[in-house]
Design a protein around this nucleic acid. Structure first.
Lengths: 386, 386
DNA sequence: CCGATAAGTTGGTAGTCACAACATATGTGA
DNA sequence: TCACATATGTTGTGACTACCAACTTATCGG
């Protein structure tokens, strides 16, 4: 490590703070980083010069002393976030300030191939560059894929619902757009988003589980970092076998968690065939039917086993539940939390909060953009101005 | 981060390398760190001056070029490692070179109190300082406790076999010895030891499970770091509920993993009452009895479920099994590995190795010493010479 | 014995942050 | 309205660290 690395890190830390915490005064940055006033001023000037931050006149405060200028991340520095689904592709341009600048949902009548995805991303980006993003600087593309992703090189090993196997998505999109591309598992990126901007904000050790139509995915935040594992495949809770205390609770032959605790079984109990998450949530909240309550309780029991194990092994300070899992939580928040506390060891359990995910539909796009921003935050001067 | 931090880190990295990898040439350190020759020379000189490293004449090599001096960690810089058990206390002085300088086992006829442990550690240390450690510099004490430990302040929340509850072991031993003390869970420290010097050497993502007489403990290495969790309680696999596919495999009412997969059930199948690990291992290896094979197979089946879940969630590159779990592995290594591969998802499973622990009885002492050395390695100049 | 190779040694340089002294902007109270 | 306290920005200097280039030393092979 050399002296230049110090600057890289300090620039990165300041940029990260204004990115994650929003605009703030130079004085606050000085206090938070422990750097000298003069150093902070110099670093901020460098970030402004590099085109990633702006300084503006201080907000009128009611405090003595010389007002400190407010530093903010530029909203015209953006990452392109992409989330391919079975029946649509969602795209967005997310600013370094955390706001979605543009957003599009392209409905599909067929399954995408990876090559087609690359072309669509490039085409959409061309359109935006001629319009909404005319003056923006695009620093990269982040893609949230529902499947197993080797994060290191952006190869999708297996995405069953998209029917992709060993697809070099990262390389394809890089070629089509000319931009650096980060690819990640959708649930892992969702975990990152909830950690930075959602329910798990401020928690350094987080277990995140998301219940979607196609199963249960997850992500782990360990000491503030998204855990990837050796290959980048970490977080696949759904395929674990559930602990089933009473055989009466079993619904599937295998006992795979996502076969037992599932959105479709919940829909079935409600007598619905299809529903978006909002409709489902309302139906669950309004249900008084005994069958529905029983099914909710059954799924809750199995979920408790998984969460208690996670508490014992990982000792998180927060567990965040998204998708239909948050509805199971909402049906009886204290009951679920108490059950997990009772089943896990007391020391790790006493500190854990179980929370519903706070970010809505934007979660995956924000997470994907975050993956694309990672390089810029690690070294704000590396990415040269357009 | 300031320029001085750069030196701290570079000093720490060099000291860590010679500590973990053993004596090596300055040239090799230069290549490994990417630093300049002159910088490496300067840093090594600083470490020698600080009394933590020595430079000696190069080993005769058969290579052209000027020989490079060999840098080694000093063996007279030691940490005191302590492992309180139910019927004894094990103590050792472990050198920064990784060797055990002195070792003692003090048998007990009663359960220790935390205060008594502190007195014993202080007394033993006084004895050593008058003898074997007369010229050594003791930098700290590391204690491996069989129980839940809050690593931040060294409080043992619960150690059922020692009958300790909320015991401020760290503070007591600090007062008694005047040295900085690190306290950790025994299995977690064992994981660290196996990671640094044992079976998991070179693996950055490791799941370690140890089967002892009192249950199953574990530790997690994530990206090369020991995972502590929010409170420092992470790694308690034993209290998880096992996934029991066939009711015939169940032996306990609760289905708690360490009640099902247990050393005592193995002893029972073998018709033994007590045995040390070596005896047990020999008995397991030599057993041809059908009942023993059945019990081994049953425990193996349940262990497979736990390991497969760990693979899905954590995607480790190695799983290390210690204690009687390594005997279950040894009875059929390929069978266990194949079963885990078959049950876990294929992408994370394809890269995982399941290995027996390589360190013997010294594991906990080495892990405990490592915890005590951590401060010195983070900042080699912080700890002033005695 | 000489050339090739590899590495140690030395003196100078550049980058980075800290610090002190001074300047500036705001609120408070007489 | 004005002096003063407070908080912060600004500027120039200094200390620390690693890098670099040039030189020196040690070994091997022919």
């Amino acid at each position: 490590m050399s002296v230049e690395d110090v600057r890289r890190r300090n620039l990165g830390e300041i940029l990260r703070r204004i990115h994650e915490e929003g605009p703030q005064s130079r004085a606050r940055l000085t206090a938070a980083t422990g750097l000298n006033r003069s150093t902070t001023a110099d670093l901020v000037a460098t970030l402004v010069e590099a085109g990633v931050a702006v300084e503006r006149d201080p907000d009128p405060t009611r405090r003595v002393g010389r007002p400190s200028p407010v530093v903010a991340a530029r909203d015209d520095v953006v990452a392109i976030a992409v989330n391919p689904e079975v029946d649509a592709v969602e795209l967005a341009a997310v600013g370094l300030n955390g706001q979605l600048a543009v957003r599009a949902r392209e409905e599909l009548d067929h399954l995408l191939t990876p090559a087609e995805l690359a072309q669509r991303v490039a085409a959409t980006l061309r359109g935006w560059r001629a319009g909404a993003l005319a003056n923006a600087r695009v620093v990269g593309v982040g893609i949230a894929v529902p499947g197993l992703v080797r994060a290191s090189d952006g190869v999708v090993r297996l995405a069953p619902h998209l029917e992709w196997t060993d697809a070099a998505v990262g390389a394809l999109v890089e070629d089509a757009t000319g931009l650096p591309v980060a690819v990640g598992n959708d649930a892992s990126l969702g975990a990152r988003a909830e950690h930075l901007f959602g329910a798990a904000r401020g928690h350094d050790d987080v277990v995140y589980l998301n219940g979607g139509a196609s199963g249960i995915g997850g992500g782990l935040i360990v000491e503030g970092h998204l855990l990837g594992g050796a290959g980048g495949y970490a977080g696949e809770w759904g395929q674990n076998h559930a602990v089933i205390d009473h055989e009466a609770d079993r619904r599937s032959a295998t006992g795979i968690l996502e076969d037992e605790v599932s959105r479709s079984r919940l829909l079935e109990a409600l007598g619905l065939t299809v529903a978006d998450d909002a409709t489902l949530a309302a139906a669950v909240a309004g249900a008084t039917d005994r069958d529905v309550q029983d099914e909710l309780a059954r799924q809750r029991r199995l979920l408790v086993g998984t969460l208690a194990s996670a508490v014992n092994v990982l000792n998180p300070s927060a567990i965040v539940l998204g998708g239909f899992l948050s509805m199971i939580l909402a049906a009886d928040p204290d009951g679920l939390t108490d059950a997990v506390r009772a089943r896990a060891m007391s020391a790790p359990a006493e500190g854990v909060q179980i929370l519903p995910a706070a970010l809505g539909d934007d979660r995956l796009l924000i997470g994907a953009a975050e993956a694309a921003f990672a390089a810029l935050l690690a070294d704000p001067l590396l990415v040269v101005p357009a």
